[in-house]
Structure formats: C-alpha cells, structure tokens
Nucleic acid binder design. Structure first.
Lengths: 227, 227
DNA sequence: CGGGTGCTTGATACCGATCAACCCACGTGG
DNA sequence: CCACGTGGGTTGATCGGTATCAAGCACCCG
C-alpha cells in the first residue's frame, strides 16, 4: 500500500459509474464520495488477512484483487476475483468485526476505501445507500451461488466454456476475446490448477477455440454452448 | 402445496424468533407479520423452479428445503439446505424477476411466505426492515463463500468433520449428535454423492466417530479438528 | 412375511491435482 | 551481442479422490 488520499477527479469518475454508486441519488452520492479515500497497492501486496479486524470495505477502480482462503496446510483457494467496479468486504457492514478471507492485489490496483462504521451510519439515514448495498449483496450472493453450482456440476472444459460465453458479446456467432488478467488468475477463479486450465483450453480446440497468449478466438459460439 | 393462510399463533411464535425477524422493532415486526402467509408442502413437492417468475420469498418454520440447480443432462447439485429459521430467495427483492434455482421440500415443511413487492415497499419505508434484510443477505453471502472455499479446499472426510464440529456444542471434548435430516440430504449439502458420505463416515471411525442411523457419537472432538 | 426406502460396500472409471521437465518471451548485465 | 535468469505457460506421467454403477443389507410398515 502507499498513500491514502481523497480521490482525484479521474478516480471519482470511475467510482461514480460503479454499480454500487450508479443507483444513488445526488445527495447520497456526495455523502458516499465524501467518505471515500483512494489507495494503491502493488502486485502481490496483501490488503488484509482473514481474522484481522475489519475497518474498511473496498471498491476496485482499476486492476484485479484476489479474495482467497487458506487451509491449514497453506493451500490457497480463490473465492472471488474482483475487477474494476467490483465491491468487496461490504458484507461486513452488518456482520462480525473480522475479515473472513484474505485479499491480495493480483496486479497494481487502485481502490476506493470506505470506513465501515461511517457507511453503516450513512446507510441508516439514507435509503438510497442501504438499497445500493442490498443490491450489491444480493448480486454477490447469486454469483457465489452460481459458483457453487458450477463447481459441483461442471468439468474443467465446461467451466472454461461457460466463462468464455459470458465474456462474449450477446447474440454473436463468433468472437475474439482478450483476457483481462493472467491465465493463472482465471484458473483460480474457476477453481482449477493452472495446468488444468491449460488442458481445458487445449480440449476446447476441437470446439473451435484458439488461444494465443491472452487472445482467444472463438469460431463457433454455438459449439461452445454444447460442451 | 395446500392452503395459504394467515399464520396461526404457533407459527407466529416460531417466526418472530427467526433471525430475520428477531432484530425488528415492534412496528416493523407487525408490518412484516401482516405480510406473512403460511403455506405447507409435502416431502418432495417442488416449491418453485429456476426461471419461474418470483413473486415470493420464504422463511422456513419447520422441516427442510433443498435449493438446487440442474445441469443440462439433468444432474442435480444442491446449493443450500434451509432449515427452521432460514430465509431463502430474499435476494430477489432487489434483483431480476426470476428464481435462479429450484426449491424442493426435503420433508413435510411449513413456510412463511412473503410477497416480494410488498416487502420491498416496506423496506423502503422502514430502516429496521432493510437492515434485517441486509443482515440476512450478508450472512448468506458469507456462508456461501465458506461453501466455495470448503468445496475447493477440503476432502470428503474433512467436510464431514467440519460439519460435525459446527454441530457440536462449543468447548466440549466429546459429543453425541442427532442429524436433523436424512444422510442423503447431508451428502448433497456437502457436495458429495451419498456413497461418498458413507465412506467418509467410515473413514472417520478411526478418529472416534461412531454412526448408528441418525445418531453420531464423537469421542474426541480434538481428534476431529486434526483431520 | 413381503416390499419399499435409505444406506452401505465393492469394483471401476474418470477427472483433476501434483510433480517435474521443458518452452518461450523478456529483461538484465557482462 | 550473447549468457543468463525469471516468470508465465504448456506438456507429460503419476496419484489420489470421488462419481458412478451394481449389488447387498437393515430397518420400517404395511
């Protein structure tokens, strides 16, 4: 981490377009902007660890953040990958005082930081704010339930196909995608070892998926849906 | 399903002790009780299916409900098992108009049903209600994240051990537990096939776990923690 | 006593983790 | 300019864990 500052105007512009802020009315929006500070981390920096006292929650302005858990042998499992516009740890607004997972910068990131106690107070007074928080929580809950279902129902190639399909523009018959982050991060997001992701990609070649670096060419979107 | 009625006093008594209702002030509580109707389902009844339009969310008064998803070959995966006091589908209060998973009665159940639109309106006017919803959402989000992490980090015996430990009274050195539902339901909850649960139990015998029907005897709680 | 249901046990197959080696692109310094 | 190291990714061989299929068992209730 380094300096902790008011947001500059560029950062403000990003923040206000964020899902959690976009639905706010003008007065709620200024309240929230007043509470936000900007903070930067470098790749691999730890933002916080499981068990630490939670003072802040965050909204990603640029870069990617890994939320993950450790088992007692030190193995890591990603729970969620947060990109620009994503909010995390806001569930602690109404829960216990400790972080429940680790957070690490997957690359250089800029975040908006919010003081939990202050936002909680603001939400009590402003329905706009509590509605926005509920929407965010509800969204994360559904995404996470999707994740459980996908982990339990889909094989590695199916997960990758599913991910690619959600990255395609709707209603397209073919597409080319640029991964927004490293493959190893994608592997973690899908609950796979990097090797398994690699093999899944090569299994998808027969379905018309070509991979070169971060560039992915999908010849037949419908074929992918059949996987 | 059968009749849909105002709650009788026994049901009201259960409902008000429920996490989502317990934190409400008197006026919010009466508002919510006014909105609740009681509904019964028999074992294996389908409450709703993924994709159907969502009019209601539910709170379990007695029995157990399975939330699950299907893949395209018809295989099922449980996402969550809801028991007495649990609320489900409340995430749709602020989201799309359709259920995102299937819900089935795992045994005969009694539920409190809430109309989504009306509760949404009530939450706009009463901070108590929206705070209660946020707490519920935040709780489910964390539980579901736990679920993802456990699926990705733990083997079958570890999952079972973890489940048993959370069912033990805190700070006890030995315990005996009665499963509140069928083993096949527990298997689904833990993301296992029933056979795998069975084998996990027999693997735990060496750690001092004895199983007879729904009764489970744990000789050494600390040994379980080492699994 | 017969039949159903829920559970266990065994045999097998599959999937993905793990370990190890290698490849490639890139940057650095001699 | 080349030798080297580093980090990210791929590929192959192996192992372990769990699903799946099939059969058998225990209990309950008529």
């Amino acid at each position: 981490m380094n300096k902790l500052l008011r947001l500059n105007s560029r950062e403000k512009n990003i923040l206000v377009k964020t899902p959690i802020m976009a639905s706010l009315g003008p007065s709620a929006l200024t309240k929230m902007l007043d509470l936000a500070t900007a903070v930067n981390y470098e790749s691999r920096d730890i933002l916080f660890r499981e068990g630490e006292e939670a003072e802040s929650f965050y909204c990603v302005l640029s870069g990617y953040v890994r939320l993950y858990r450790l088992n007692k042998d030190g193995r890591e499992a990603d729970i969620r990958i947060c990109g620009p516009g994503d909010t995390f740890a806001e569930c602690l607004l109404y829960l216990g005082p400790n972080y429940r997972y680790n957070a690490q910068a997957a690359e250089n990131v800029t975040l908006a930081r919010f003081d939990i106690a202050r936002v909680r107070a603001a939400a009590e007074q402003d329905v706009d704010i509590s509605r926005a928080i509920m929407q965010s929580l509800a969204n994360h809950l559904l995404t996470t339930m999707d994740c459980v279902a996908n982990d339990r129902l889909q094989t590695a190639p199916q997960r990758v196909a599913h991910f690619l399909l959600t990255s395609c523009p709707k209603e397209s018959t073919s597409a080319s995608i640029r991964l927004p982050f490293q493959k190893s991060l994608l592997a973690g997001k899908l609950g796979l070892a990097p090797e398994a992701l690699s093999r899944a990609f090569s299994a998808l070649r027969r379905a018309g998926v070509t991979v070169r670096g971060r560039l992915i060419q999908i010849n037949d979107v419908n074929a992918l849906k059949q996987i």
